[in-house]
Write a protein that binds this DNA or RNA. Structure first.
Lengths: 249, 249
DNA sequence: ACTGTTATCCATAGTTCCGTGGAATATAGG
DNA sequence: CCTATATTCCACGGAACTATGGATAACAGT
């Protein structure tokens, strides 16, 4: 739209920063951006996920596009939105970190929403890498399948939280489970761990989620058949059940 | 205010994040926050620096306080505001980084505002540490004196940009100058370098500014520095004799 | 107590933003 | 060409935000 920059006042600079700020004033826009940091989605899927009307969702996405925080890709009649680069994910991560550090309310909410499993120790990324190499853990991706498809830890098994109870038998009771989800503000993994423990399984959460794993420069696989895993042979094949999630759109 | 968190819906979480987002919708609030990341200031000083009316400034500061991004300290009749912790500075830094990465306009503005010295290579922090140890550079802090007083690179000389021309003779023409300021979005150091070069001096900018230096875990000196500021033998050894200077968290 | 300084609170008017339906656009498939 | 689907554009009423001047509160000095 406006590429003209003439009255080059210093104020213009902060106005540009405010363009980005504008995206994160609205709770729903943050939610949308958070989702888009996990995987690209159509407008309809985003409206569904956030509970907004379609037109409202589109409007929010336009705001985000004006700030260049998202990009689009057209496929037939639908438009897929995605986060415009790694920096965007880093930014929403920073926002979440700041909120947890400064706003006691965030911790309160996480505690009240999260099961009491939140008190348990988390597994560090380096520890997971070691354990995975020796093959005595199952790495569990409890996010929705689309997000697993868009990128996951090599060797991880996809088992969305909503199906966890129904598919419990797919897990080897002899192995410890390490579950992960979207990040520190996401409660999928803690809930999964709580469920698993209630059934007598050993389970812990990974520190942070997949975005942080990616930002740490660790390998990320993008298909159900982990083929891009460079050095990590996989975290214990668990069972072959992982192949289920193939199913392309 | 409102500590009650009862209807613990997931939406509440993003509403909390939006509290922080609210601070960075307004250009002037970003500017204020940026200033507060450098040094604490009174409301009056902030109003002066940003060109806002006093009441308006105060209102903005209230918004920032509600988001817990700033804290206050009273001294006699005036109130000093400061950034509420290192995380806040990291966040505004992340905002600036994102803007530079995604918004071409920001680069344009920096280029059009900045002198053509922007094309020159910058000195890395590690290089500066080495050079300083061998003592063949002058480290120049070109920010306002209050900011120098609130924290500066050990051994740096305070010479605010506005006084640079008048006090040029204080610099040893035989040594190279490394100037620094507030960060990547600040133009004080580039301008200083341009001025120095026009006089035939060798001069370069440090990468980033003081906040990034601090975040890198490098030593920061906080002595109030007498009015002369010239005393320090240029480029003193950087290992922190400057003590920890407790004060301020 | 009185006075001047500094900051916050309050009411107001002008502006922008949000969610909403309904219309318009773009694409795929008869 | 016509229809169906997915998305964007548009107009509008209601809500929230911003800047501002005047009033109020906290404090220091005489």
């Amino acid at each position: 739209m406006e590429y003209r920059i003439q009255a080059s006042d210093r104020a213009d600079l902060y106005e540009q920063l405010a363009r980005i700020g504008k995206v994160v004033v609205h709770p729903k826009r943050i939610e949308l951006l958070d989702l888009l940091c996990q995987a690209e989605r159509s407008v309809e899927a985003l409206a569904e996920a956030t509970g907004l009307k379609l037109t409202t969702t589109s409007a929010h996405l336009q705001v985000m596009r004006q700030a260049r925080l998202v990009e689009t890709r057209r496929e037939g009649t639908r438009v897929y939105y995605r986060a415009a680069g790694e920096e965007v994910c880093r930014f929403v991560g920073a926002l979440g970190d700041l909120a947890r550090a400064r706003l006691a309310e965030v911790d309160q909410i996480l505690r009240s929403l999260g099961t009491d499993a939140s008190g348990t120790e988390r597994v560090s990324r380096t520890e997971l890498l070691e354990r995975a190499r020796s093959g005595d853990v199952v790495v569990l991706d409890v996010r929705p399948v689309e997000e697993y498809a868009a990128g996951h830890i090599p060797g991880a098994v996809s088992l969305p939280l909503e199906h966890l109870e129904a598919r419990l038998d797919e897990l080897d009771p002899g192995l410890e489970v390490v579950a992960y989800c979207r990040g520190p503000l996401c409660l999928l993994a803690p809930e999964a761990v709580a469920t698993l423990r209630a059934r007598g399984l050993r389970a812990r959460c990974l520190e942070d989620g997949l975005p942080e794993w990616r930002q740490a420069g660790l390998p990320v696989a993008t298909h159900s058949a982990g083929c891009s895993g460079r050095d990590t042979p996989a975290a214990a094949p668990a069972d072959g059940h992982e192949a289920r999630s193939g199913r392309r759109r």
